[in-house]
Design a protein around this nucleic acid. Structure first.
Length: 683
DNA sequence: ACCTTGTGAATTTTT
DNA sequence: TTCACAAGGT
């Protein structure tokens, strides 16, 4: 049994590092705590928070002050709250939640910033319309105003057709568009882009007028965390714009700065490398202003530049954005065996070269194999055999895309059928959040509906489910035992093989039963105008094929019916995935999705391409021997890939194998520089 | 034979 | 965003 004996000497040094952090807190020295993967960053953060509570708590309470702890995700927020225990002193939240809380009452100022934003956006669009080559034909129009007003009268036609291919779109538009404008339609995507921009300008100008007239809904700006895009013309801002506005308001108004400083003298940031540049700019402003007015503030960053895998994150730039930070690093690793540490050190290749804190850290395994797609199954089996994988000792596989995660976790058809709908084709960015999120509130309309149906079916089929769990409390609260029993009997009779059959049974019973409680329960489950399978399907159609053409309705309905006919087992796997129920011995994740996690046994499936980049990993390995020649753009790409590789490899505690699915002969030496030897995988 | 233009396909994560 | 490919023009 390795990783069990902690070195006394290193433990003492670890404690010294923690004391250094405390010293910074005492002296109000802004600091950055840098530590590699598995170093116990969150542990250090929590210890620091506890130190502040213990040593400064009374004074803070006396002055009605609080400590701010900001995290990158809601999951991290909950984890810190959990580990910290109950305290009113520390406000733990995501950066967005905290910033909105800080600025939302300054509506007058926010609306002013909003007006500036709208004006700037209009200017940007007009500038694009005036310069970009794709708008050349528009610029050549003699009477642009006539075209603009003609288009604004035909918004409906535009939105009904904008998701169609070029051919259909052209036909639809030629029918009513004045002949003189047909030239604009030669390139349909240019035309779509043009009209979209014209509409935006119109919306924004209209919004500015409404703000000017102080119309009811135009006096306040609202941050909506549920949507990923701004709806500026409706006074709604999303995540990035919130940060932008917060920065502006804090930059402009010294009073706001002072209020924040005086209320929150300690600000700690978890995973700083992922935070947005604007957040750093805000914190830097606060730090500088606090020195100016001589009201002390402590700002502490906890994180690791090498784990910056999102483009928005500041990463290494933090040192430029917030200068004179006290730099505290920790090189001890509490997670992995020496074999793993050795490899991840070579990947990060910077001044943090980790050492295990354990005296018995040998005994792990890291191996690099290459093969092809056909080897995947047998490779998994080999690892299962070699490592004695079982229900209790699971194997975690890292793949690059959610599509593969869905496939290997056993619900390929559900994912594909949803993906192949009109809605998710035009909102491809939404499919993964709306179908695969562990956070139910993020699931899309139809996925959450299907989820609830599956949930009900599972509860009914499981004899151990308590009656009260099947029903919403609203329904059963006022029922007598007899009524409850009858109701459950009806539910138990809905015994079916597929979601489709189950739904049909639900609605059939709905129409024949006299039991009002049942009807209420079904209404609670699905809210429809009419309770029938057809109307359920219609509801799905409306959501997943919005504005679908008359002639496509039938095929779309067939598509959706097929979705409902997918094997029940797949729905079970999907349900378990959403709920993170790990019933199988092999579990699949995306590389990105494993951030912050750790697993005993890992396989990473790797290949040349990822996303837009056909040579993501191949070019990484080609360049990792010598990065001196790289240009700025190339270096950003390189670092991004390096960090992703670092994050995924550093999840491993004991065993790590990589199977590369493309030919590696061109960049062999790059791989060898990190993984020592390369094995050809043979079945 | 070669060039230009238009089109579609590939897609991680968080707020 | 980048690439491949098809269609049509020179």
């Amino acid at each position: 049994m390795s990783l069990s004996i902690i070195s006394e000497e290193k433990k003492q040094q670890e404690q010294q590092i923690q004391k250094d952090i405390f010293q910074c807190i005492d002296d109000y020295d802004d600091m950055i705590f840098n530590a590699g993967a598995g170093a116990g960053k969150t542990f250090a953060l929590i210890k620091s928070l506890k130190y502040i509570i213990e040593k400064k708590g009374d004074r803070l309470n006396h002055h009605n002050q609080n400590v701010i702890c900001i995290t990158y995700t809601n999951v991290a927020t909950n984890e810190i709250k959990d580990r910290l225990g109950n305290t009113k002193l520390v406000k733990v939240s995501t950066i967005h939640e905290r910033l909105w809380d800080l600025i939302k009452d300054y509506q007058k100022q926010l609306v002013k910033i909003h007006i500036e934003k709208l004006e700037k956006e209009i200017e940007i669009i007009n500038n694009e319309l005036g310069t970009e080559t794709k708008f050349e034909k528009y610029r050549a129009l003699v009477d642009k105003g006539a075209f603009v007003s003609s288009m604004s009268q035909n918004r409906d036609t535009y939105y009904q057709n904008k998701d169609k291919g070029a051919g259909d779109f052209r036909t639809a538009f030629k029918a009513f568009l004045d002949e003189q404008y047909h030239g604009l339609l030669t390139n349909v995507s240019h035309f779509k882009s043009l009209v979209g921009k014209l509409y935006k300008v119109q919306d924004y100008e209209e919004c500015l007028e409404k703000i000017g007239r102080e119309e009811a809904k135009y006096k306040t700006v609202i941050y909506n965390a549920r949507f990923n895009i701004d709806k500026l013309h409706r006074m709604l801002i999303s995540h990035d714009t919130l940060l932008e506005y917060a920065y502006k308001i804090i930059e402009t108004y010294d009073l706001v700065k002072q209020i924040i400083i005086d209320k929150y003298p300690y600000i700690l940031i978890d995973e700083y490398q992922d935070t947005h540049e604007n957040v750093l700019k805000i914190l830097n402003l606060l730090s500088q202003y606090s020195r100016q007015i001589k009201h002390s503030v402590f700002i502490g960053y906890f994180g690791d530049t090498a784990q910056n895998i999102y483009d928005d994150g500041v990463g290494k730039n933090i040192f430029e954005l917030h200068q004179n930070l006290e730099n505290i690093t920790k090189v001890y690793n509490r997670r992995s065996t020496n074999e793993v540490i050795n490899v991840i050190n070579k990947i990060r290749n910077d001044d943090i070269q980790q050492l295990s804190i354990y005296r018995d850290a040998d005994g792990g395994l890291v191996e690099f194999y290459y093969g092809n797609q056909d080897n995947i199954d047998s490779f998994i089996n080999k690892c299962k055999d070699d490592w004695g994988i079982s229900q209790e000792k699971k194997l975690h596989c890292l793949v690059l895309t959610n599509e593969l995660v869905a496939k290997y976790n056993g619900f390929e058809n559900i994912y594909q059928k949803l993906k192949d709908t009109k809605y998710y084709k035009s909102n491809w960015q939404s499919i993964n959040t709306e179908v695969l999120s562990n956070d139910l509130s993020k699931l899309g309309n139809i996925p959450i509906l299907l989820y609830r149906v599956v949930e009900l079916k599972r509860k009914i089929d499981n004899p151990k489910t308590p009656i009260t769990d099947i029903l919403n409390e609203k329904i059963y609260r006022n029922l007598t035992f007899q009524e409850l029993k009858e109701l459950i009997e009806i539910f138990k009779s809905l015994n079916n093989s597929s979601i489709k059959e189950f739904l049909i049974a639900i609605f059939t019973v709905y129409h024949i039963t006299e039991n009002q409680n049942y009807k209420e329960a079904i209404k609670e489950l699905v809210q429809l105008e009419e309770y029938s399978f057809d109307s359920f399907l219609g509801h799905m159609l409306q959501n997943l094929f919005p504005n679908v053409n008359e002639e496509d309705i039938e095929t779309s309905k067939i598509h959706l019916t097929e979705l409902l006919e997918v094997e029940l087992e797949e729905y079970t796997f999907w349900f378990e995935f959403i709920n993170k129920i790990e019933n199988k011995d092999v579990i699949y994740h995306t590389y990105h999705g494993t951030k912050g996690e750790e697993y005993d046994n890992i396989i990473i499936f790797m290949q040349n391409n990822f996303g837009f980049d056909r040579k993501k990993f191949s070019s990484y390995f080609s360049k990792c021997l010598d990065t001196s020649e790289l240009g700025e753009e190339e270096l950003i790409k390189f670092t991004n890939t390096k960090n992703l590789l670092y994050v995924s490899c550093s999840r491993a505690i004991n065993n790590l194998r990589i199977l590369y699915l493309d030919d590696i002969s061109e960049f062999r030496s790059g791989i060898e520089s990190i993984f020592d030897s390369i094995n050809e995988y043979q079945t």
